[in-house]
């Protein structure tokens, strides 16, 4: 059980398919690591199944069934899905992250302070990154004009709102400034999904913000 589960409304939007890809990936990773949230989503899926079962049937012509059956000749029944082996060095990555980690992706040092892998998800409303912080190191103080979703995947970090460890989920609302610091022990790795370009508020911020808004850092 995690101390910081994803809010129930977000789990609902995830289960109903209403979340955009970026936030949906954040919730999927949280759910993979947190048995209670997983259970909650399983219940919501069962609710979806029960709602379908209750539906009054909308008629479908027999010809449609015939046409669909005719297509089956070209559709093999695939063997049972297996979880892909985790890439060396990426053992911390839960299965839902695997399809997004291309072999050519690797850590990139940013501002000499932290490492980043920028993930490539469709749509441009969210910036989706993996961040890695050495123990005791912090991210530059920043604030977000939009929503920010964070899932901790390895190690832990602490900011003004609390301490987060593996599986913990944080939703950063709006204008709140925060400065996360990685806990002692392993490097902290987290998935961060940011709605709009972040705004750096520290002394270097105003020099760096043009680079952030252009997606360079």
């Amino acid at each position: 059980m995690s101390r910081h589960p994803a809010p129930e409304e977000l789990l609902f939007d995830y289960a109903s398919g209403a979340l955009p890809d970026g936030p949906a990936l954040a919730v999927a990773l949280h759910v993979a690591l947190d048995p209670d949230s997983r259970r909650a989503v399983e219940r919501l899926h069962a609710l979806g199944g029960a709602l379908i079962e209750r539906e009054i049937e909308a008629p479908i012509d027999d010809a449609v069934l015939a046409r669909t059956m005719a297509r089956l000749d070209d559709v093999p029944v695939e063997p049972r899905a297996v979880t892909a082996a985790r890439r060396p060095g990426f053992e911390w990555a839960p299965p839902p992250l695997a399809p997004h980690l291309r072999p050519d992706m690797n850590w990139r040092r940013i501002l000499g302070k932290f490492d980043e892998i920028r993930l490539d998800l469709p749509g441009d409303a969210y910036r989706v990154s993996l961040l890695r912080l050495e123990p005791g190191r912090g991210l530059p103080e920043h604030k977000h004009p939009g929503y920010e979703y964070t899932v901790c995947l390895q190690g832990g970090y602490t900011d003004a709102t609390g301490s987060y460890s593996v599986g913990d989920f944080a939703v950063g609302p709006g204008e709140q400034r925060h400065e996360p610091i990685a806990d002692p022990g392993e490097p902290c790795i987290a998935l961060i999904v940011v709605e709009k370009p972040i705004v750096l508020t520290g002394p270097w911020g105003r020099w760096l913000n043009p680079l952030v808004s252009r997606g360079i850092i």
């Binding site: 049937e57 909308a58 479908i60 069934l65």
Partner: peptide, 14 residues
């Protein structure tokens, strides 16, 4: 065909 007859009209309504 049996699965289709049961679920397809319900999914369509959904």
């Amino acid at each position: 065909a049996s699965l289709f007859r049961h679920f397809a009209p319900r999914i369509k309504a959904f």
